[in-house]
Amino acid sequence: MLTASLYLLILAASAAAVLVMAARHWRARDEQLVDQINALLPQTQCAQCTYPGCRPYAEAIAKGEADINQCPPGGEAGIRQLAALLDVAAKPLNTSHGEHKPLLLAVIDEQRCIGCTLCIQACPVDAIVGAAKHMHTVIADECTGCELCLPPCPVDCIDLVPALPDGQTAPPDYLKLTAEARQLQRELAA
């Protein structure tokens, strides 16, 4: 009786100890780091870094597979923040991924749009509304200016215009703020 109870106690305790150690070892470090890196990325989802979106890029940085200078929309300011977080030296933007540009906004010339829905499928943030054979339009607040809708358009009816008035530059975390605001709206609506 005593042996049996003692045995069960030891078995349960050792199983619990192994699990707690595994959970600490595997989880605590990575997931938090990925979240922190992702919070510094601009959330344009433009895929210029060669990853499908900002979170996959954050995961690649956390794993050490990607460098911190592959994000043109984040620019030098973004690289500096990433370098500070990861405790590495800041480096100039790798321009093979693109140049840092002021914040842009996609505008569809509705006269020329033929309603082919190709840009809707290309948009990573679902900022284009419309249906087949009907005119499409861009929701300005959702658009991140990622330019991914330009290549699929068969009639070149999409233009990118500066999102902010002349001479005004976006604060470095502008897109991040809009992304957070969108997230908040979604949570409130749900």
């Binding site: 045995y7 619990a16 595997w26």
Partner: peptide, 24 residues
């Protein structure tokens, strides 16, 4: 330990811990 009658209980415990480990 001569407590083979506890095998079902121990196996369940071991399996549960292993599944949790696999999930992690």
């Amino acid at each position: 330990l001569d407590i083979a009658y506890l095998s079902t209980l121990s196996f369940i415990l071991v399996i549960a811990a292993l599944v949790q480990l696999t999930e992690l």
